[in-house]
Nucleic acid binder design. Sequence first.
RNA 1: AGGGGAUUGGUGUAACGGUAGCACGACUGACUCUGACUCAGUUAGUCUAGGUUCGAAUCCUAGAUCCCCUGCCA
Length: 601
Amino acid sequence: MPDPTPPAERPLNFIEQIIEADNAAKKWGTRPDGTPRVHTRFPPEPNGYLHIGHAKSICLNYGLAARYGGRFNLRFDDTNPAKEEQEYVDAIKADVRWLTSAFGEGHSFDAGPHAGGLYWASDYFQQMYDYAVALIKAGKAYVCELNAEEVAKRRGSPSVPATSPFRDRPAEESLRLFDEMRAGKHPDGSMTLRARIDLASPNFNLRDPVLYRILHEEHHNTGRKWCIYPMYDWAHGIEDSLENVTHSICTLEFENHRPLYDWFMREISAALGGARGEGEGTGPSSPGGRAVWHSQQIEFAKFRPTYTVLSKRNLLKMVQDKLVSGWDDPRMPTISGLRRRGYTPRALRAVCEEVGTTKVESFIDLGRIENAVRDHLNKIAPRAMGVLRPLKVVIENWPKGTVEELDFVINPEDPGAGTRKVPFSGTLYIEREDFMEVPAKKYFRLALGDNPPEVRLRWAYFIRATGVVKDADGNVTEVRATYDPATRGGDAPDGRKVKGTIHWVSAEHARQVEVRLFDRMFSAEQPGERTGNWIDDLNPNSLETVRAMVEPIVATAKAGDVYQFERLGYFTADRDSAPGAPVFNRTVTLKDTWAKAAAKE
RNA sequence: AGGGGAUUGGUGUAACGGUAGCACGACUGACUCUGACUCAGUUAGUCUAGGUUCGAAUCCUAGAUCCCCUGCCA
């Protein structure tokens, strides 16, 4: 299903403006069919689960490829074997597959529209090594035998340059040592390969950054083949280059790295005998004569929702400390958590599109994300009746033993969805909050009071309360009521109106199911902002489990099925569901202006 | 301190020297067999101070505030 708002109907964001200017100039060349090349990528490190911030990046990158008839790569930036795991690789693949249509079924990652393919940084290790050797030969890199502590000590300050006694080591010596590093002749941390750039730069990224460190670790892809691993800055631009990525989109904190990104591309090209070239541009076939493809890095501001923590470290802690049931706990801001909760890819794409793409660091109201899923589910979710906190209603004048089948509109937003039959009898469950012994002002539901109002049971009959039964503590355990047989179906032949319509379930036919109700995970807009510790703002009531009464058809739901329980919200069957015994996650409530007004009192 | 970014209603964004607009929220009201949805209306903004200009959110000068940078993480 196509997304609702075609991107063409809104102004271009700053990245689209760059791309359109590039396309007009044919900066990146054209495809065989004449389309200007646009090639983006999503480059996660497989060291954690993807969250909604990553979803923004995926939607941005994939959306750009789709909009401009380009290609989109999924690339694992697996350059640090100490932190990366297969579990994360699998989860990330599933998430990207779910969120985009870039990839085909099964194991195919290059079959969908605009799919560029699946790539691994680790597949480029040899090429990266060769480039490093070229840089050493060109006098642009050297082996440094300072350990991490010494490097930190010699880092200098903005006004004091860094130092390294190994900086002017002859290239032959660096070459030999680099080869020994690769051959495993030196222990972890004993030496590094560093670029020779500028030890006095106010941009610390340029103070002879490390290209390679020694890490005797098993890599999930390359096993024991390598014991030196490239650092992010060295690796990333090469990855983009080898994949002929045009626009390498990343987040704001990498702005300071861009000079380094460009330096690497220029110097690799020069070391290989090509033109150095200034700034980003195209590759070997271009008039400039660069020896390597030079992508353009562009930075944008992260997607940060309120009432949420997003850092991998904190999410990992929530999992490890069992604050949640796992990475895909429906309260988690992970893509897998949102999916399990019942969010749809389209809703996520819609909200990413709505908030736009800029360089301004801002917070997105969590409510916006909730609205996006309401919008989508409203159109597609079949309606059903379920009662979260049941209160029994006995209709005194109902003919004993009679059961009727009433017509229920499946989705008023979708007339084609039709109707189905719902059983009705003289004993029902209604929502506890849909009855008041003494009605509040403007309360339109079932009530006693001086003048008990008539209310409609959705698609059924008008009823009026006549009394209550209470337990020893004075709690209402049952409401007595009478119905008007002439109002069958929910309309009065004499045209009289009611103020309230409430949902119900026939007690005799009701099925009990588990329903998990979620509230926001944190009670502060910015967890930890006030106290300094995000854990302090954890909402202790973020999960409530109830036994709900639902109409029979709901009990047949399978994992992933979604219903709107009328007047309550959208509920998606969890993977914990068993045949005939579904477990529902409340994806999101419906808007409730009465609850809002009542809360103000 | 040095470097790199950012600043427009409550929130998110547009306007690229020429009427400060859109979306979300909030508030009113209409509609309604979901207090939902939908529809209509209202609300409210250019960080500050100077300057250039017929005209400044936009250009200039000075300042303020916030974010990022001294990992062999990405």
